[in-house]
Computed example of a mutant assay.
Amino acid sequence: MTDVLRYTAFATDPAGGNPAGVVLDASALSDEQMLAIAAEVGYSESAFLTPGPDGVERSYRIRFFSPVAEVDFCGHATVATAVALGELRGTGEYTLHTNAGPVPVSVTERDGSLKATLTSVDPRVKDVARSDVDEALAALGWRADELDPAFPPRVSNAGVNQLILAAATRERLADLDYDFDRLRLLMEKLELTTVQLVWRESESVYHVRDPFPVGGVVEDAATGAAAAALGAYLRELDLVPEAARLILHQGYDMGRPSLLEVELRAGDRRVRVSGAAAAL
């Protein structure tokens, strides 16, 4: 019987955050078995660890599976895994080798709670065709004039592709009732992991939502990979300073409040995403 740990990431309260399954020793599992376990657990992703390719202490190979497919990188399951490792093997630095590349993770303790900070792979931001934006809006049931013109649509990747669309109002963001299959087909065409829907409250505070139909999930409660992609996007388009700290609120509209912290550093293109995690 495989031992599956369960954590919720980007929250300290088990009623919030995004749940993830964590298997700390998946050495004996095949791809098919990992997928079957992820499907049985039923969370948006589960993480599976094996020894790292370099043989270095605190270095691991990590793979992520949604209930229906493998995902190259998952931020919330990375945070959940890092906190699980911190509880078992202590705070400090870890390296998690993902399909997208190596992701350094730092685990710290404050006031009795553990917090993990992941450092993304080098991000990239690219344009998206107007026809694809129109199709995304049609699947979402959004009008073009409900977008914030200060935030042009882009595909941003800090490990996996995310389509970023910015709502002009909090009310537009809160009203999410989309065509699951239509959006899934577009996402498969564009090789997207989620669609990052954003509303800016202030220069440093954002509210986000992430449909995830390609993973068989209507919506993610906290999406670390999309948070990293958003940080890269904001910096690439000069919407924030080169060095900045951002707060992302996610999951509130689905009853699972989550808090994601994003850090951008001058002279370093990588994006850091931090959050707590709680055992379930």
Rank of each mutant, 00 (worst) to 15 (best):
D13E: 08
V41Y: 04
S44D: 11
D132K: 07
A166F: 04
R235L: 02
Y43G: 09
V273K: 04
A229H: 10
A168H: 11
Q250H: 06
D111T: 10
E45L: 08
L264E: 06
L29F: 03
A36R: 12
T91N: 03
G112D: 03
H207L: 12
P14M: 06
V205R: 13
V107E: 05
D181Q: 14
P51N: 12
T2K: 09
R272P: 00
A138R: 14
S274Q: 03
A174S: 14
D122Q: 12
S27A: 15
Q33D: 12
A266D: 15
S59Q: 12
L85N: 09
D132F: 00
V218S: 15
W199P: 00
A138D: 10
R270L: 01
F212S: 09
T91P: 01
T193V: 14
L186Y: 02
V214D: 01
L260A: 02
G90K: 03
E236K: 15
A225Q: 13
L85T: 09
D148S: 14
R61S: 15
T98S: 15
A228Q: 13
G16F: 04
D31W: 00
S204C: 00
R256G: 09
R89N: 10
P67L: 08
F65N: 14
G159C: 05
G52C: 13
V198N: 05
S156E: 03
D111L: 09
H249C: 02
E93V: 09
M1G: 11
P241Q: 04
A278H: 08
T78V: 06
P153V: 12
T50G: 10
L197D: 05
G141M: 06
G92F: 01
G86A: 02
D148E: 13
N157W: 03
E236S: 15
V217C: 13
E40I: 02
L137V: 10
D72I: 12
N157H: 08
V68G: 10
A158K: 11
L114V: 07
R124A: 14
A226N: 10
L163P: 04
L192Y: 01
E87Q: 15
D210F: 01
V271D: 04
F180T: 11
P241C: 07
D3L: 13
S113N: 15
E201C: 03
Q250E: 12
R235I: 05
A116G: 07
T78N: 11
M187C: 12
A116Y: 05
D134E: 15
V83Y: 06
L88W: 00
A174P: 07
A69P: 00
L118I: 06
V205T: 14
R110M: 02
S44K: 05
V125Y: 03
S202W: 02
T78C: 10
